[in-house]
Structures are given as structure tokens and as C-alpha cells.
Amino acid sequence: MKILTQIIVLTLFFSPQFNLAQIKDSKLDLYSEKKMKKAQVIGMQLGYLKKDGKTWIGSYGEANSETGQKVNDSTLFMIASCSKPITALAILKLYNDGKLDLDLDINTYLPFKITNPHSPEKSITARMLLSHTSSIKDNWEILDPLYTIDSGGDSPIALLDFISDYFLKNGEYYDRNENFFNEQPSKYWEYSNMGYALLGLLIEQVSKKSFSVYMEEDIFEPLEMNHSYWFLKDILTENIARPHSLPENKNESIKVLKHYGFPDFPDGQLRTTVKDYLKFIQLILNNGKIKDKQFIDKEIIELFYTVQYPEINKYQAISWNYNEFENFLYYVLMRRLPSHTGGDPGVATVVTYDPKNKIAAVVFMNSPPVTFKGGKILYLDLPKKLLKESKK
């Protein structure tokens, strides 16, 4: 079990001297640190994956600006919505194993019935949830106050309870107009965090395991992602990047936030390292194989980055999006690739990869840039540079 592995390797793995990078590149270190300082962010971990499977990882700045704790290659980062592709992988694994059908009504698997009240006769499917076409709406008047920013720690609300309270008519958080779009499922695209929270419950119901246990036993352990966690309570190390809120004007100061959680955690609460995340990307680029073993069928992995409803959104694949940066200028300067970004209080992340050339780039920050220059560095300069270096 992972807990025993943690105890055995904890001292070594989380030592600042423990270097996970396979490739040394002092010029790229200088470039990355310079860009981090120009973006005015607190700490950063980033890396790339080459076609031959080798990786480069760089870590810079502070995990905690109050204590001066430095970021190293073993520092865990909360990655916000870059968690979604890993939740999607779990659904695809259940599909691969014949336990879930992407195109069946989700109520086939749920303990209660969920429909859009504006079109109750239309089924919602896992494929729709995966591609943000389910017509499920994020009600931020409900979701924002449930972040444990003030108290810190994991949310005390169980996933099943939260889902039922959000989607069922007698639920505490139910609102037919704010929780659902008027459009029919599969006929409208809108990014949906709650759709991915619902996928988390599907994973629990189909696997007969809690979400975090299924992810640990059936996803993280086979991929050797030994330093990836959904809940703070499961983390034994203090080597976790604290989220930071940067000042937007000179009269404000940097705020070091508590480690927090939220009840819709399958959509964005993963804490992991760039090294672990690149193992997940390598699975995709290796056509579903772990070393020489087929973990998930090649056809299903290819489905992962295939646009699902081109008549609705020509860029949206399963979780990944080919227009993730939503800036036309960026796509003049670099190719459209399956990508994902993440943003939460004190968190900013980017993942992009090239299935054809089998390369990838990952950037984790513990403070979202607040300037245009900072945003350009995060979403264009660093991913573009990493992908270029990964081709060498």
C-alpha cells in the first residue's frame, strides 16, 4: 500500500537534495527562473517529457513565502482543474474494463435520478460530462463559500451528500435555474466543474470504492504516481506548496493562504508533482501502455484527445481542449495542442502535449500571475519553450 511506501521513502524522497530530473540543463534553469521572477510569482515547478521518455524538471522560488521554505522537485502542488484529465482517465479506465458505458444515461449507475429540469426527457451521459456538454451549470454563489479558505483542511462534506444536495429538488443547494442551463444535454457547450464532480460520484458507484481509494489503487499505483493525493489528510509530508494571493496594487500585500479543500474535489483538488503528472501524460503518449503492459486500450487513449461534439465545440475533446488558452495570438505563435489549465485561489497550472511528436510540457505555480506579462509567461512563453526543448 502507498502508506507503507511513504514511510519507507519519506526521508529520502522529500529531501531537498533528492533530484528527480533525468536531464540537466543550466540554460533552461536560468531561463525558467528569470521568467518566474518576471511573472512576479512566488514558486514554480515545471518540466517536459521527451519522445524517448526522458524528463527535465525545474523547481524555483518558495513553497511558503512566510517561512522561506524552498520549492524542490518533490514539492507537492495543488493543480486545480488540471486534475480533471486524471478524473477523466479513471472514467475511461472503467469504460475500458467494461464496467461503464460512456453513452448510457448516468442514472443507470447512480443511486438517485439526475436530469436537467428544463429538459427532463433528455439523458445525461458520461461522454457529455467529460466534454462539458451535459448542460450542468456551476452555481458559484453555492460553490465559492464552500471552499475551506478560512478554516483550512479538506471539506467535511461527503461527495455523495454534496451531489444529492446540488442536483435533487429537495437538496440544500438545488436551484433549477442556477444549477442547469436551459439548453438540452449534448446541444450546448459550457465548461462545468460540477460535471466533473458528478463524474467522481460515478467512479464511486461503478467501482464500489471511494473516489480516492479507486484513484490510488487503480490509477496511481499502476502508473507509479506515488506522490499524488486528493486529500490533505492522506499527505504525510510538509513539503506542500502553500497557495499565495498576489497583490494587484501597491497598497496590498502577499497573502499566504491555508491549504484548503472543497466538496466538488474531483474537479480540481489533486496535489501532485510535475514528475508524477508526466507519468500520466506518458501513458497517453505511449498509447495506453505502462512499460510493455497495456493498461488501457490504444483506441480509448486516442479517444481521450479526440473532439467529441464538433458541431457544438470544434476544440473540446474528452477533458482536453485545443483552444484552452483562448487567445488567438498565442495560436499564431504555437500549435493548437490538447491542453488544460487550472486556476484556484493561490494556484495556476498548465499542461499541454503533442500526441504526434510524443512530447509534453507542465507548469505548476503556487501564485496566479496578476499582470498581462505574467499571464503570457504562464500560458505562452513557458509551455512554448518547454515543448521546443523537449524536441532536442
Rank of each mutant, 00 (worst) to 15 (best):
I124E: 05
T125R: 10
T125A: 00
A126W: 03
A126I: 10
R127P: 00
R127F: 02
M128S: 04
M128Y: 10
M128L: 09
M128A: 11
L129R: 04
L129M: 12
L129A: 04
L129V: 01
L129C: 06
L129S: 02
L130C: 06
S131A: 14
S131Y: 06
H132E: 05
T133A: 13
T133L: 10
T133M: 06
S134M: 10
S135E: 07
S135K: 01
I136G: 00
I136K: 01
I136N: 02
K137N: 10
D138M: 05
D138G: 00
N139L: 04
W140C: 00
E141K: 13
E141A: 08
I142Y: 04
I142W: 02
L143Q: 08
L143K: 07
L143N: 02
P145T: 11
L146D: 11
L146N: 11
Y147I: 09
T148C: 11
T148M: 07
T148Q: 08
I149V: 13
D150M: 11
D150Y: 09
D150G: 04
G152K: 09
G152R: 04
D154R: 09
S155I: 10
S155C: 10
I157L: 13
I157R: 09
I157W: 07
I157F: 07
I157M: 11
A158F: 13
A158I: 13
A158Y: 12
L159H: 02
L159E: 04
L160I: 13
D161R: 10
D161H: 12
I163E: 08
S164V: 01
D165L: 09
D165H: 06
Y166P: 00
Y166E: 02
F167N: 00
L168Q: 14
N170D: 15
G171E: 06
G171D: 02
E172G: 00
E172R: 15
Y173G: 00
Y174H: 09
Y174T: 01
R176H: 05
N177V: 01
E178H: 03
E178R: 06
N179M: 01
N179Q: 07
N179C: 14
F180K: 03
F180W: 14
F181D: 01
N182E: 13
N182L: 15
N182K: 15
N182G: 15
N182D: 14
E183N: 15
E183Q: 15
Q184G: 01
P185I: 07
S186A: 15
S186P: 03
S186W: 03
S186M: 09
K187E: 14
K187Y: 12
Y188G: 03
W189F: 15
W189A: 04
W189N: 05
E190W: 08
E190F: 12
Y191T: 05
Y191M: 07
S192F: 06
N193C: 13
N193F: 07
N193I: 03
M194H: 02
M194I: 12
M194N: 12
